[in-house]
């Protein structure tokens, strides 16, 4: 299916999770033509395109960092176009892990739960579980700067998942990882998103990575 310079493929027909309706992104001036996309629960949209084409601006707009010029963003039936970032329920994983270096690994993961006023001990217990899920329980006492880039990336993923987001956005999350870790982690994340019915957008400039994670593909010019 071709949409005014935007190419999409393989759309499924389950319940919509995240919907972009005639969304126009950009700073003062539109970067792309209006986007209309449904990303169904548990599915991943891979956004592929060269540097500067607007991939990151698209994520910034959906997450609420940058206001949309027009159009709307619907998440599970709710229009979140004007909702503040912290109330959107969208998790974000950047290329850099961006761990909070003044916090322990467990407290990094528990951060979102604490923001939701979950009891400290309960939050830490859940963070422990997630740390175990990403296979890092053996290094839980290390500081953020003592772990490898791949390990930090996995902690960042666990942190984003902890508060049970309704959607997840990935901005080239695996680009700092080696091929083996990248493939394994992307497969695990894909399974998890399906299992939890979380719609996701995965931005990358790597076609192989895009094809390996995508249920839908959006190619930006």
């Amino acid at each position: 299916m071709t949409m005014s310079g935007v190419t999409m493929s393989a759309m499924t027909m389950s319940t919509p999770g995240l919907t972009l309706k005639k969304l126009v992104i950009g700073y003062l001036h539109p970067l792309l033509e209006p986007l209309s996309i449904d990303i169904h629960a548990g599915k991943t949209l891979a956004v592929l395109g060269p540097s500067g084409c607007g991939k990151s601006t698209l994520l910034a707009t959906i997450v609420g960092m940058t206001p949309a010029l027009s159009g709307s963003i619907i998440l599970n039936g709710r229009d979140i176009s004007n909702v503040p970032i912290h109330q959107r329920g969208i998790g974000l994983v950047f290329q850099e892990p961006l761990l909070f270096s003044h916090l322990s690994l467990v407290d990094n993961i528990a951060y979102g739960l604490r923001a939701a006023h979950v009891d400290k001990e309960i939050a830490r217990a859940k963070a422990d579980e997630l740390l175990d899920w990403v296979g890092l329980s053996s290094i839980k006492h290390q500081r953020t700067w003592e772990i490898s880039g791949g390990q930090a990336g996995r902690v960042a993923l666990a942190r984003a998942l902890a508060p049970n987001p309704q959607a997840l956005l990935f901005d080239e999350p695996y680009s700092a990882l080696d091929n083996e870790t990248r493939l394994r982690l992307s497969q695990e994340v894909r399974d998890l998103l399906r299992q939890r019915n979380i719609p996701a957008i995965h931005v990358t400039h790597d076609r192989i990575e895009a094809e390996s994670v995508a249920d839908q593909l959006l190619v930006l010019p």
């Binding site: 997450v63 503040p84 970032i85 959107r88 974000l92 923001a115 939701a116 942190r159 902890a162 987001p165």
Partner: peptide, 15 residues
């Protein structure tokens, strides 16, 4: 301090 850290913290539910 990377401004994206602030964004990540906001997406995790922080005002």
């Amino acid at each position: 301090i990377n401004p994206h850290q602030m964004v990540v913290a906001r997406t995790l539910g922080s005002t």
